[in-house]
Amino acid sequence: MIPTFKRMMSSKPTIPKQFKSLVYSSHSVEDPTSVLTLQRYTPKEDLTKSIVLRSLAFPINPSDINQLQGVYPSLPEKTLDYSTKAPSAIAGNEGVFEVVSIPEGETDLVQGDWVIPLEANQGTWSDYRVFANSSDLIKVNDLDLYTAATISVNGCTAYQLVKNYVNWDVQSLGNEWLVQNAGTSGVSKMVSQIAKANGIKTLSVIRDRDDFDEVASTLEKKYGATKVISETQNNDKQFNKEELPKILGSHARVRLALNSVGGKSSSAIARKLENDALMLTYGGMSKQPVTLPTSLHIFKGLTSKGFWITKNVKERPQDKIDAVQNITEMYKDGTFLSPRDEIEKLQWDVRRASDNDILELVKAGIRGKGKKKVVALQW
């Protein structure tokens, strides 16, 4: 059964004198696991005057690994607060926590609330964390464990990509589209659901594969993509001239392209856009540059921009709060699916796991392939 919100029963939870966190003081591109250690430390904050959280689950995201490598554009400040010889930072940018203690006079939170940090670089790979202000946290009581643990990055990215850049007009002709590559990715699946719930049609491009029909059917029937095509079709001039208009239908407006692949795929989805449209790039899985024909800029007025959720949250924190609230409503009414089927759970047994067990568990998650790895703490 998927874990869901439930209030703690104890009115006086016991908070340990020492916390455990996975920290790093240096970086390694070759082996990011080599810089991680499991550190025990006494929190420096006055816990009676702070919001004390215990971790419920945290994902291992590519950006987390990039931070360990030292190649990510945003890195947390390293300090000596964690009883380390060299200044260190707690790893992890995303996760869901449970409120175990609040200071006197705190009115926005109560014991047992589920919360996520508002900003990145807060250090989530830990058993306990301490925050000074409730304004630095967002409540997620109405979500299941895996949706709450991953909503901060993938969920908010998908929501803002769809909602923040185009003034959609779905009322007049009702045939407005977005096109996206990497259609099987976690963000793309969320984009399809959010778009469908808002009357926007989605053309999703996925790589060629032996089980294409099966994968395409799942994306359309389960996740709400309007139509799924292959990269071969995406790049085929004859397909785009003869078949694509039949798929889009009359009076179709392809107003937004979402690119997380780069290379030829990015230019092919950009070519499908109407005049004066927008392409947002939020990833580059092919590790190839975004290539755009000059004609798209000159004759079709294409705008190409980048999207980075970390920067957006810093500049416009309310956008993230709004995204979480809206996705929560979608989740409650059944139009947004939990990502539980896309996740491999790694269990941290708080009572029984040794420090080395915890460290090796997370290292295995970093090295692992396939589904997104989420570490769930068993209390």
Rank of each mutant, 00 (worst) to 15 (best):
E220L: 06
N235W: 01
Q233W: 05
P245R: 01
H251K: 12
K264Q: 14
S250E: 15
H251V: 02
L244K: 04
P245A: 10
K237E: 15
L256Q: 03
G249P: 00
E220V: 11
V261N: 12
Q233D: 14
A225C: 12
E242G: 03
G224V: 09
H251N: 15
K227I: 06
L258T: 05
G224T: 09
N240D: 09
H251E: 14
N240H: 01
N234L: 13
E231V: 01
S260F: 00
I229F: 08
N234E: 13
D236Y: 07
I229E: 06
I229W: 00
A252Y: 00
L244H: 01
L248M: 09
H251F: 13
E243H: 10
L256C: 06
E242A: 11
N259F: 02
L244T: 08
N235D: 14
G262T: 07
P245L: 04
S250A: 13
K227F: 05
K264M: 09
K241W: 03
F239Q: 10
L258K: 01
L258S: 02
F239T: 11
E243S: 13
V261S: 10
L248T: 07
L248F: 07
K222Y: 08
K222H: 13
G262Y: 04
G224F: 07
V261L: 10
S250F: 04
V261W: 10
Y223F: 15
R253D: 11
K227N: 07
H251Y: 12
D236R: 04
T232E: 14
Q238K: 12
E243R: 02
S230I: 08
S250N: 13
K237T: 10
V261I: 13
E243I: 06
H251L: 09
E242D: 15
K221F: 00
K241N: 13
N240S: 10
E220K: 12
